[in-house]
């Protein structure tokens, strides 16, 4: 995974795990890499990985069993909240970018619907 070095790295580690859980690539009960494995593979500071794992434990995304490893331990309810939360963040960002381009929300909505129904027509000029 490539990190955006202008953003906190521990946050990006957490986001990466969130996405994997949302997509169903990581399911409850599955083991995730040990902190050491993760640090070596991604070539990042072990303390940074430790911070990310600790926060994921606090957010009840994962559980570390002493001597056994770290496992996905997210409830279905939390997973749905995570899913919606991340989608909302993406949407918010999208709307802001569109506004910055000078589109009002109605125009944006129309374009979004057109995009969905395969309406590529007005992109080609």
């Amino acid at each position: 995974m490539d990190f955006d070095l202008a953003r906190p790295i521990y946050q990006q580690i957490i986001d990466d795990f969130k996405k994997q859980m949302i997509r169903g690539e990581l399911r409850k009960g599955e083991r995730i890499p040990s902190q050491r494995e993760y640090a070596e593979k991604a070539r990042i500071n072990p303390n940074t990985v430790q911070r990310a794992y600790r926060e994921m434990e606090n957010m009840r995304m994962v559980e570390t069993l002493r001597g056994q490893g770290t496992y996905v331990n997210i409830s279905e309810e939390d997973l749905q909240m995570l899913r919606k939360g991340m989608a909302r963040a993406v949407l918010k960002n999208f709307v802001m970018e569109m506004r910055a381009l000078g589109f009002d929300d109605e125009e944006t909505l129309i374009m979004l619907q057109a995009e969905q129904t395969g309406g590529e027509g007005d992109n080609k000029q």
Partner: peptide, 13 residues
């Protein structure tokens, strides 16, 4: 390092 990135929105470089 991560706190500085957060505050400034920039990489260390």
């Amino acid at each position: 390092a991560d706190q500085l990135r957060e505050e400034k929105g920039m990489s260390l470089v």
